[in-house]
Design a protein around this nucleic acid. Structure first.
Length: 586
RNA sequence: GUCCCGGUAGCUCAGUCGGAUAGAGCAACUGCCUUCUAAGCAGUCGGUCGGGGGUUCGACUCCCUCCCGGGGCGCCA
């Protein structure tokens, strides 16, 4: 409808050009918008105002000329000029009726489109280090990423969802050492636990698995573990040096093969937990991409070689630096450390190089906002490699701050003090969690009040929307109980009987759904969908209270049933995109 | 110090590319269940859009500046 009106205006516009009112070579973007106030009609255009300057005439004069040149069509009942020069379109009542038939016809496909033209897009999200269970902070990235990916698929992109598994590096070594120390305790070797180790209960569980598999065979005496190890922080030492020495000692004592087994036991156990958690949360991936595989397949070395060959790296103080300042970064970045170890950044350059080589039209990274300073260096690296950095969109998700009892909660994986995503899901349910996480735009800081979410879950907007869906289902159950059946064909014939203001409002909103989905997808803003569904549910509840559906007149009854069935379909489609269930009864 | 995000009703937040009288929910208050589920509906109350400049037909929206809150600024990942 919007497109149609824009085309009508385009015809009027070229008529004005041939009349010489507007320069013939002046190109223009014709915009038609939904009005906010129905008193201004259904759609409006500001075209006349934008032309005022180039034509050298008053906006209202141009508007009058445009309206005079506008072709007549049946769907448009009235065209008005209002305010400073808006052209307002009032649609005929019949113009809205078609939407119900379209929704019933297309069913679950209503709202889907092909604007993405099958272009391949990658969405990488969550990618939390496998050093512990997902916590509520990761939940926001999971819900947001999954919804953005679903929305993009709904509008016709070929979406590839990926989780980058950080299965290499120092954090994972700290986890391995932590697991080993718990194993030693189970084997009867009592040692002070490092202050910088991972202290969660899950570390005990992994240690216990090792102990079941190997008994005390992997144990060493405390003296062997602690010989020449620098003091931990509580004893006046440096916690980083302490834990690094423990890692080195663990590797020495166990040897490479057993250390790898220890390491992989921790990695696989935690990763399995993360995968299960996400799956239960309705978040599925096409690929789990291993960081270690980049090193092992030589891709990291290739990336560094390419940077060397193009002259964007230099050596200083024994380390190899990438000259990222050349591409707008604040300072240059190390890719190979003095000790010969490649940095995490080196892997990330390789990873993004690999992503672009896979041929995606767009690559979307969803990161926590604390990584924002990282964006310029990754883009710099892609540019230096000769790739098109503009294909990469980094969406930064602000933290979800947890409140309990009105107080902010600390979250630290290291200390083991956090609310896990699993706990949250168990407390408030998947539906409420998924919905809450995407209710706010991602740049907005989010206060997640646990007490509210747990104790007053009945007030959650998600229930309000689900209730609307359940109510429609209930009406149809009542229909059957009263020995009647829904005659969809008769309903379609009687659409003209729907002239209550509540019915017209619903028709307008139903027709808006595809536009809203498209905008939410292209702008990566799922919160629009959440707000839209609330509004639609509100209009339905209002209608429900104002009018009886199961009336005696079969023509009116079936017309109303067609309408509420269309409402139900759109609610179900929208909730589906958010990963929220649409229950038959509540 | 510098960079990023935010500041809109008592609270939590929407506000489309600059558009017409700035909107919801919660909270508070007043009504509505013999009728398709009251997890609902109708109504009332509530605003210097952080402050100050600027751009223009028009600014919550764009630019400058200042204030406040959160976060980032490692040869950690």
């Amino acid at each position: 409808m919007k497109q149609q009106l824009a085309q009508l205006l385009a015809q009027a516009y070229s008529a004005l050009q041939s009349q010489g009112m507007i320069p013939a070579d002046h190109p223009v973007d014709i915009l038609v918008e939904r009005t906010r106030d129905r008193g201004h009609g259904d759609f409006a255009s500001n075209l006349a105002m934008t032309l005022a300057r180039v034509a050298g005439r008053k906006p209202r004069d141009i508007a009058e000329a445009l309206v005079a040149a506008l072709p007549q069509v049946a769907q448009v009942s009235k065209v008005e000029i209002a305010g400073p020069g808006f052209i307002n379109f009032h649609l005929s009542r019949d113009a809205w009726h078609g939407v119900v038939g379209e929704i019933l016809e297309r069913g679950a496909d209503y709202g889907r489109s092909e604007v993405g033209r099958g272009q391949p897009v990658q969405v990488e999200f969550v990618s939390a280090n496998p050093t512990g269970p997902l916590h509520v902070g990761h939940g926001r990235g999971a819900a947001y990423g999954a919804t953005v990916a679903d929305l993009l698929r709904a509008v016709g992109f070929n979406v590839h969802r990926e989780y980058y598994v950080n299965d290499a590096g120092r954090q994972m070594d700290i986890l391995a050492a932590s697991v080993y120390l718990r194993y030693l305790e189970l084997a009867g070797v009592e040692l002070p636990f490092p202050s910088n180790g991972y202290q969660g209960d899950y570390v005990w569980d992994i240690g216990a698995t090792l102990h079941r598999n190997h008994g005390n065979d992997w144990a060493f005496a405390p003296e062997e573990m602690l010989r020449d190890i620098p003091a931990d922080a509580p004893a006046g030492g440096d916690k980083e040096e302490h834990i690094d020495a423990l890692i080195t000692r663990t590797k020495q004592l166990l040897g490479p093969q057993r250390y790898r087994e220890l390491f992989d036991e921790g990695l696989n156990s935690i990763l399995a937990n993360i995968r299960q958690d996400l799956k239960e949360f309705g978040v599925e991936y096409d690929e789990w991409f291993s960081e270690r595989s980049l090193t092992e397949s030589g891709v990291v070395d290739q990336a560094i070689e390419r940077l060397k060959a193009s002259g964007h790296v230099y050596e200083q103080e024994g380390a190899l630096w990438f000259r990222s300042t050349e591409f707008g970064d604040e300072k240059d970045r190390v890719v190979v450390r003095e000790n010969g170890q490649k940095t995490y950044f080196a892997s990330d350059i390789a990873y993004h190089m690999n992503k672009l080589e896979r041929g995606y039209a767009r690559v979307i990274d969803i990161w926590g906002a604390d990584h924002h300073g990282y964006v310029p260096r990754v883009k710099a690296a892609l540019t230096a490699l000769g790739d098109d950095a503009s294909k990469l969109d980094v969406l930064l998700v602000q933290f979800a701050i947890l409140y309990r009892g009105g107080e902010k909660m600390q979250m630290s994986t290291r200390s083991g003090e956090f609310v896990t995503l699993r706990e949250l899901r168990q407390e408030v349910g998947n539906d409420a969690a998924r919905f809450f996480y995407v209710m706010r735009k991602c740049e907005q800081h989010m206060d997640f009040d646990l007490d509210l979410a747990k104790s007053q879950s009945n007030d959650n907007p998600v229930y309000y929307i689900q209730y609307a869906h359940a109510r429609v289902m209930s009406v149809f159950r009542q229909l059957a109980e009263k020995g009647m059946a829904w005659d969809r064909e008769q309903g379609a014939q009687g659409m003209h009987l729907l002239h209550e203001s509540h019915e017209e409002a619903l028709l307008v909103n139903l027709s808006r759904y595809p536009e809203m989905v498209e905008a939410a997808a292209l702008n990566h803003e799922p919160h629009h969908l959440a707000h839209y569904l609330r509004e639609l549910a509100n209009e339905f509840h209002t209608y429900y209270n104002a009018h009886q559906f199961l009336v005696g007149d079969p023509a009116l009854r079936n017309a109303r049933l067609n309408l509420i069935q269309a409402v139900r379909q759109v609610l179900a489609n929208g909730l589906g995109l958010l990963g929220v269930s649409a229950p038959d009864s509540m």
